[in-house]
Design a protein around this nucleic acid. Sequence first.
DNA 1: CGGCAGTTTGATGCCCGTCAATAGTGGTGG
DNA 2: CCACCACTATTGACGGGCATCAAACTGCCG
Lengths: 248, 248
Amino acid sequence: MEHAPWSKNGHPVAAYWNMGCPNANAAFAELIRVSRRDMRARCVMQLASERARHVFLPFAGWLVAAKVDPDGARQIVDFVLPGDVFDPATASTAIAAVDVAAVDNVQLAMIPRKAWHGYLETHHAAWALSVRQTAAGYGRMAERMLRLGKSSAETRIAYAICELCLRADPFGLVADRAFHLPLTQQVLGEYVGLSSVHVNRTIRAMARAGVLDYHGQLEVIIHDLAALAAMAQIDPAELRAAIIPSPG
Amino acid sequence: MEHAPWSKNGHPVAAYWNMGCPNANAAFAELIRVSRRDMRARCVMQLASERARHVFLPFAGWLVAAKVDPDGARQIVDFVLPGDVFDPATASTAIAAVDVAAVDNVQLAMIPRKAWHGYLETHHAAWALSVRQTAAGYGRMAERMLRLGKSSAETRIAYAICELCLRADPFGLVADRAFHLPLTQQVLGEYVGLSSVHVNRTIRAMARAGVLDYHGQLEVIIHDLAALAAMAQIDPAELRAAIIPSPG
DNA sequence: CGGCAGTTTGATGCCCGTCAATAGTGGTGG
DNA sequence: CCACCACTATTGACGGGCATCAAACTGCCG
């Protein structure tokens, strides 16, 4: 089988996005092909409160949706992972709600919003995908707000690790498996609302307690999944159902 | 003009939701008429992680979307106000991400999700409304997460007041106008992630500083809008564009 | 080797949660 | 009308968790 120009390592885009309709898939592949880009780590692709021009579909590497407050502190609102579809638009749909930037080196499609919405209107089958993606994003934010509001640093970090391992790895959240999260402790802190110093203390304590191991820029191995889930106040299977868009 | 059975005080539902298409409006009015309900304050209509059966459209009174953590503390994820359309579904679309409950006495339509999605498929014009509502909800949650993560109690509360006054009052965020927010300080605390005691201290300090007045269950009058906006770290016009669904 | 970005650890202080007690406020029944 | 109750608001005292400042330590790359 020949590799399409928008495939990577023999891993075609179709493995991430499937509309369940040949016509829709073909038109989608063409959209992707035309708007394919490469971005280096830290590259900013969209600024909040500027005109929202694109919908973002990464297929290698992570993006962040973030906001910066007047003091310069950054709060990460959500990560955008390969297979996601992210539209940064707000209520007045021309304006972006958040900054969008690359976490590490990223390969993605930046589809102009007009073209994307035209595609959705033409290809009814793609609506289901869009709706699932939106619902998954909402579920993630609801879970995360619960922890941002009232939980301890330990709960927030345990939850973030569970969420990101679930999303990053098709095998799900299992023990004794290495997960790679392309994050510094600083970035993880911006996600969970903690200083990088306190992220370090907390994750270090978890490692000393034997719950997990990590090294470098967050190569994580979970040893005691039950303990981690308890800290995060989740049930792995239930969380998966709530935040991972179902392929169906 | 005769009042339709689903109108209230001569204030027809059409003032809240307009699909911009007579057919779609007529079918919508019928949906509303059939699924109209009254609910008393504190009544719970949906539990998180149970099957999501309805889409909620209040036209008098407020709803909350909330989650309860294992210790019994409640985090309010969003308020649902008259004119909103709220679908509590998650990524596996049959399950609800959040509890839905009435804040005060509420008149609303609870449309079965199947009927609602059938309606959206039949009446293309209504998609735009649905998309705007979703985008507005996303914008609100992004703004709120920014404050939940890193901001002081003063900023969180000032922001919550700005957001809710904007959403609750068609005249927008203006000085020396009385806004009624049907919330106790306890509930406001569950929204911004603070204890009711600290909500009291903070809002009291704001009143003493002459920024606003309030009494009873949050009848608020803003005296110094500029100071309040500075505390909330917002620009009123910009915030409005980000979180209020545009009528167009 | 030096430089830089990230990690690790210690010391200090403040914001906000918790506990506790008092004072309103509205609703209900006598 | 008043007594009584539940609920909410208000204020004080105290303690802990996390931010902040600062200083080594690590690993990586040129």
